[in-house]
Amino acid sequence: MMTMTSTRPAKLAWITGASSGIGRALALKLVREGYRVAASARGQEALQALAAEANGAIIPFPLDITDSNAVLSTVARIEAELGPIDMAVFSAGSYVRERPTQFKAAKLRQMVELNIIGTGNCLEGVIPSMVARGAGKIGILASVSGYTGLPGGGLYGGSKSMLITLAEAMHPELAEKGVTLSIINPGFVKTPLTDKNDFPMPFLITAEEAADHIYTGMEKGRFEIAFPWKMVVSLKLLRLLPYSLYFAITRKMLRNDR
């Protein structure tokens, strides 16, 4: 059983996508750092199992973030029962790979509704009370795949690119109101989603390592929290290349992916 390590009144974090992967690892990390955690995901059994590991410091709030009314009512319930949300990290999302020759608009809709609209519902839920208090931290889980378009990653990467752009646009005004907004761009992290991949995943790290990066970055108030650095640098350099060189490289990725 886990115990909290701080004697001060515990701050409150709300984590979505907390039933597995990065969200789960981050919830446990925050408990070790002295937070109480309101944990949301669609899987109730997985949330209950997570709560059982944390000796009462993690409180389950089952939620489908694509339901805007449910998100708003869940935020209201969390704050009524536990107090103001000091930190919110939106890690709920999904991932699919696609082939242009087999393009399905339904897959695009899935990415938009969960990764973009679902995150937007959560932002709508927490921003007003944080702005009213002049305090709070928000983390949006995007991806290094949002930097540039890579074979097989157009739908997922496109949804994450939208989140990066949204965060860049929102950051200055929220900062003036005392709210710190961070965009979180991981590379490959070992999770149930990446376990489905059948291609090489360079610089793969564990969910626990990812949680350490996120916690450190949010505590320091960084806008971009990106890791591992080799993956970050590689893709940021790739997006700066002229298209003639860019496509020469991505065509090689396509051959390796078949």
Rank of each mutant, 00 (worst) to 15 (best):
M2L: 03
T3A: 08
R8Q: 12
A10W: 06
K11P: 15
K11E: 06
L12S: 11
A13C: 13
I15K: 00
I15H: 03
T16L: 05
A25L: 04
K29C: 12
R32K: 15
V37M: 04
V37Y: 06
A38I: 15
A38G: 00
L47Q: 04
L47Y: 03
Q48F: 07
Q48K: 11
Q48T: 09
Q48N: 06
L50A: 10
L50Q: 03
A54F: 09
A57W: 07
A57Y: 10
I58H: 00
F61P: 13
F61R: 09
P62C: 05
P62Y: 03
D64L: 04
I65H: 08
D67S: 09
V71F: 13
E81W: 12
G83A: 05
P84V: 10
A88C: 12
G93W: 01
P100V: 07
A105I: 08
A106F: 08
A106R: 06
A106K: 15
L108A: 15
R109W: 06
L114D: 05
G118N: 10
G120T: 04
V126P: 11
S129E: 12
A132G: 14
A132N: 14
R133E: 08
K137A: 12
I138Q: 07
I140V: 14
L141R: 01
A142C: 05
S145H: 07
G146C: 04
T148L: 01
G149I: 01
P151R: 02
G153P: 02
L155Q: 05
G158S: 04
G158V: 08
S159M: 03
S159V: 00
S159C: 09
S161H: 02
I164G: 00
T165D: 13
L166W: 08
A167I: 14
E168T: 03
E168A: 13
H171I: 02
H171S: 13
A175Y: 06
G178N: 09
S182P: 10
P186V: 00
F188S: 15
V189T: 01
D195F: 04
K196M: 02
D198W: 07
T206I: 01
E208A: 12
A210R: 14
Y215H: 14
Y215C: 11
Y215A: 06
T216C: 10
G217C: 10
E224F: 03
E224T: 12
I225R: 08
I225F: 06
F227G: 07
F227S: 02
F227A: 12
P228W: 09
K230H: 13
S234N: 07
L235D: 00
L238R: 02
L238M: 03
F247L: 01
R251G: 00
M253K: 13
R258A: 05
